[in-house]
Write a protein that binds this DNA or RNA. Structure first.
Length: 576
RNA sequence: CGGAGCGUAGCUCAGCCUGGCUAGAGCACUUGCUUUGGGAGCAAGACGUCGCAGGUUCAAAUCCUGUCGCUCCGACCA
């Protein structure tokens, strides 16, 4: 491609709308343009990279034995009602109406569609295992689109769905996808790693997210230096907080004391009260299915809502409002506690974090504004506690297994593999006749890769102060020829010859044939980040030489006659 | 939805607080001349519903109200 014949609108200045580096480079290198928040047009250069990622994904999915299909983005709401997600996923569903005022749904994902396909087409154990995938647009009514392609209303996802006869067979399908994902991200030039992920209400232990370490990511990952453990912070657990919880009883019974105006853990930890966070019980109230539920944590701990969802058995819950809380406990946030709950609140489930097990001599709210209780022994003074791991792990805590200290790193989630089980197949009638003549639900798995997000993750990971440094496999072009001389010069002529020669070898080459000053061409070349630049200047050309300059590497000279083979060799060498 | 901020030329922004005459700069764009190894110089030119609507005023980019949009922080996800 000739630069002058395509559209590569590079920007010298950073658009104000772009906060993070990869978003800025996406715009500055002329890869995408925004239509409106969360919706982007891919320009020729950006589209080429996107297609390369798609091709890698497609090759690896095919290699893993998955079958490519294409499912409708526009879907009938009935199948969503059937799966139960018309309500539970309501906040991300785009809904549209046709002329007859019938409602339709724009698919945020395709479990319902693929399961209804399987319900119709898979009827025997002989037809499994099967894994169907597609690469296409997904629509999500994101509360807040942000960071360019990272979180958009419309994005390209590779989604795959496996169907198996048993749990064991489903695990085999799962591991195939896991391995395929590792290959995909490696081929994209990404340093990605798998972490244990929260399985939410579906349960089970089999869900991994593929993460790209990046400070701009939206996830926190807990991991161990030796690589033996890595988990999303939502899932991660430890041996518990580093500072021990008081476990010696004062012998006294709970005693009311006045704490006017004290409504935070910090305030109670300060003078004159000086009750350390480890000796406080934090009481949180959630609203689950229209009913209250209490969550008790040590004062210095943070609740982990993914873990709470596991306790509640649903992801549809929220923090109770101040008014709701007052109605239940007779006090406002800051003075709440599970000891001596008023009569109206009996029957409210109480979930407590394991770090509080055996806690004695604790201080907590008295359910009376402006008062707290001291000398609380939790197991003596609070009834009907359901114990569970509810806290968010912190840096430095010891891991459950090896006891090594936990580290925490920000990361971008680019892929997710999930063993679904029979949740959808049961609801949607995707059953088969087994060898023994029994009818059973198919055991499913689902596997997603955010393709557009992966593209941006590559940019986030591969750049320097001058611009993008594309990995060869996903670069829009492999080679950029930069002649330093206008039309009719010897440099341009040599560039044209090399351009034709490389093209005939099947090398993807971009020729900067613009009548621009060298400085402009160099700056654009660095910004756009093509892996290998061939510089052809009048001076070196007079000596029979041209320049080879890998992006971010050292410049070498090479005889004009050898240029074609040297470029081809370089590419071959990089590809291995 | 809660909190914060911003909407002025294609892009980056000044002007607004303290209302005033023809709304500005840099970059980009067009033409000409010069220049030509790291985002050139000179000259000429084109480009604006000052987000939109209403109000206050002799007078509004500027003050007030409403509204729409965007960005950032929080709750969701690939």
């Amino acid at each position: 491609m000739r630069w002058s014949q395509t559209l590569i609108p590079t920007l010298k200045e950073t658009p104000a709308e772009a906060e993070i580096l990869s978003h800025q480079l996406l715009l500055r290198a002329g890869l995408v343009r925004k239509l409106t928040g969360g919706l982007y047009t891919f320009l020729p250069l950006g589209l080429r990279s996107l297609r390369k990622i798609e091709r890698i994904v497609r090759e690896e999915m095919d290699r893993a034995g998955a079958l490519e299909v294409s499912m409708p983005a526009l879907q009938p709401p009935e199948i969503w009602q059937q799966s139960g997600r018309y309500e539970t996923a309501a906040d991300v569903l785009y809904k549209v109406k046709d002329r007859a005022r019938k409602e339709w749904v724009l698919g945020p994902t395709h479990e319902e569609v693929i399961t209804s396909l399987a319900a119709g087409e898979i009827s025997s154990y002989r037809q499994m295992p099967r894994n169907f995938y597609q690469i296409g647009l997904k629509f999500r009514d994101e509360i807040r689109p942000r960071f360019g392609l990272m979180r958009a209303k419309e994005f390209i996802m590779k989604d795959a769905y496996s169907f198996d006869v048993s749990d064991d067979a489903a695990m085999a399908s799962y591991h195939k996808m896991y391995d395929a994902y590792a290959r995909i991200f490696a081929r994209c030039g990404l340093k990605a790693f798998a972490v244990e992920a929260d399985t939410g209400v579906i349960g089970g232990n089999y869900s991994h997210e593929f993460m790209v370490p990046a400070e701009t990511g939206e996830n926190d990952v807990a991991y161990l230096e030796d690589g033996s453990y890595a988990a999303n912070i939502e899932k991660a657990s430890s041996r518990g907080p580093l500072l021990p919880t008081p476990s010696v009883s004062t012998g006294a019974t709970p005693e009311l004391f006045a704490t006017p105006g004290v409504v935070t853990i910090e305030a109670l930890a300060a003078a004159p009260y000086s009750v350390h966070g480890v000796a406080q019980i934090k009481t949180l109230v959630y609203w689950v299915n229209g009913k209250p539920a209490l969550c008790l944590l040590r004062g210095d701990d943070q609740a982990n809502e993914a873990k709470l969802a596991g306790c509640f058995g649903t992801t549809v819950f929220r923090a109770a409002t101040s008014d709701e809380i007052f109605g239940v406990l007779g006090a406002h946030p800051g003075s709440l506690g599970a000891v001596n709950m008023p009569g109206a609140s009996t029957g409210v489930p109480i979930y407590a974090d394991l770090a509080l097990r055996g806690a004695k001599g604790m201080t907590t709210g008295a359910n009376q504004d402006g008062f707290h209780l001291r000398h609380v022994d939790i197991e003596r003074d609070v009834k009907a506690i359901q114990w569970s791991d509810l806290r968010t792990v912190r840096v430095g805590e010891l891991s459950v297994g090896s006891g090594l200290p936990i580290k925490i790193q920000r990361a971008i989630e680019v892929g997710h593999v999930f063993k679904l089980g029979t949740k959808y197949s049961e609801k949607m009638g995707a059953t088969y006749l087994a060898e023994d003549g029994q009818r059973r639900p198919c055991v499913m798995g689902c596997y997603g890769i955010g393709v557009t997000r992966t593209l941006q993750a590559v940019i986030e990971q591969c750049n320097d102060k001058d611009g993008i440094r594309w990995p060869l496999n996903v670069a829009p072009y492999q080679v950029l020829i930069t002649p330093l001389g206008g039309a009719g010069t010897a440099a341009m002529k040599a560039a044209e010859d090399l351009y034709a020669a490389l093209q005939s070898r099947g090398i993807e080459v971009l020729l900067d044939d613009r009548d621009e000053r060298p400085g402009v061409k160099f700056k654009d070349a660095d910004l756009v980040g093509i892996p290998l630049r061939v510089g052809i200047g009048e001076k070196s050309l007079a000596k029979g030489e041209i320049e080879l300059k890998p992006r971010g590497g050292a410049l070498t000279l090479c005889p004009v006659a050898d240029a074609e083979t040297r470029v081809a060799e370089w590419i071959k060498q990089q590809a291995t």
